[in-house]
Design a protein around this nucleic acid. Structure first.
Lengths: 234, 234
DNA sequence: ATAATTAATATGTATAGACATAATAAGTCA
DNA sequence: TGACTTATTATGTCTATACATATTAATTAT
């Protein structure tokens, strides 16, 4: 005879998910409150609370004080995307990675860059253009702007041997980032650099990295044919 | 004079992040254990535990029993992507949404689809092709396969008035999904349907939705010029 | 030296109880 | 009726304590 010891929040989480999946509880409905669930599962409210908080974080339920917990109507398709580090992505494929600097220039921010870097007035920006190769085949073209107010040390780095991303990771801590993805036809410049045809579809990642107070860097990454795979959990 | 009441796990989380950002603690280093941090912050170990668990979930630190908690070397750029529901995306822009069914056909799975739908043998599949309009302008082309073993009721739905996605959300519970994103040049068929030129860059989302045991549906969504914006937190 | 065993340790999780807080509902007054 | 005030309630969070568990370090046996 088995003796129940404790009910895990994992068990509760799965059980509630199961009830939702089997339509025992319907989308839009409020589910019993924590105290009642604690009785049902014969555990403490803390345990139920943890299970429900994780379900809320995963977007399965919505919680509001006094109102209660209800099953999200149309579970928003949120997905956790792991954006690969270019060197690792290439090396994981068994290819040899090579980095090359195309251009390094200190410029004054034009209006467009000024807005994107959230600068009050035009100031000095380090503009870098680079290429990443996999087995000597152009793999990604990188167009980057570094805010020298936020990263003054970048002035002293030539970026011949180290890629901007790796330098930034080593020299600053990049925690907050904002991404935009889109598709774009290759322009003559891109085609030339990536050794593809003009108008070939490019997958572009635009990333803005910031500290709490300022934008540190803006980068546009042009991929040729590369895909991103992500798994969203439920 | 202010009297300290309690230390919130939010405070601890932010404080640790701050220490990492200001390089007081370095990437790769182990940070003090929970008991010590509890003393530092004058709070209970539970509170520290919660803060650290959230930091671990966010990919900032790694934790292992007995070993301790250390700051992740190269914080993996993971980002939470909210995939818009087409109707809402269009309506949010203030445009009028319209759905149109192009084709509905029950087929036997060919080898390719059979693999993607994880079927042991060829079985009946519902193939749907649809268009989504914003103010009568083609906005997204949808190419979808529904596994009739997983969703037999779909046989009885004509999909003239309701889009496959909305029907599936109402009739099944879709919790697990797998996404792939890529860029692709428009083929003649796509160009024709989306009213664009051949070879224009398309942003494609490929989504496979499943229950715990089987694949329910596979869909390819072809966007014309639409971008996705996502914010990854730190 | 090597393998197996045992101890030590940091995190993982559950609990009962307490108080905080947001949001709603009920009640009160103009 | 409408504007304010006051309960009420469900979730949010913290604490002290206890035990579980994974992993490493130390010890013992071979």
């Amino acid at each position: 005879m088995k003796v129940k010891k404790t009910t895990s929040f994992h068990y509760i989480k799965n059980d509630i998910l199961q009830r939702i999946k089997t339509r025992q509880w319907h989308a839009g409905d409020y589910i019993p409150n924590e105290a009642e669930l604690a009785k049902t599962y014969d555990c403490s409210r803390s345990t139920v609370n943890r299970a429900l908080q994780e379900l809320a974080y995963a977007g399965i339920v919505e919680r509001r004080r006094k109102a209660g917990t209800r099953i999200v109507l149309q579970p928003i398709r949120s997905a956790n995307l792991q954006i690969p580090i270019i060197r690792k992505e290439i090396e994981n494929k068994g290819a040899i990675y090579r980095y090359a600097l195309l251009e390094r220039k200190i410029i004054s921010a034009n209006e467009n860059i000024q807005i994107k870097l959230e600068l009050n007035q035009s100031s000095k920006i380090l503009h870098l253009r680079c290429l990443h190769f996999a087995d000597e085949i152009p793999y990604q073209y990188e167009d980057r702007w570094i805010n020298l107010l936020a990263a003054p040390k970048a002035k002293d780095e030539v970026f011949e041997m180290i890629s901007p991303n790796e330098w930034l990771v080593e020299n600053l801590l990049l925690l907050e980032a904002e991404h935009i993805f889109y598709a774009k036809n290759a322009m003559a410049e891109h085609a030339d650099l990536l050794d593809i045809a003009v108008d070939d579809a490019l997958f572009v990642i635009e990333r803005r990295t910031r500290s709490s107070t300022q934008v540190i860097t803006l980068v546009k990454l042009y991929h040729n044919g590369s895909t991103f795979k992500m798994i969203s959990q439920g």
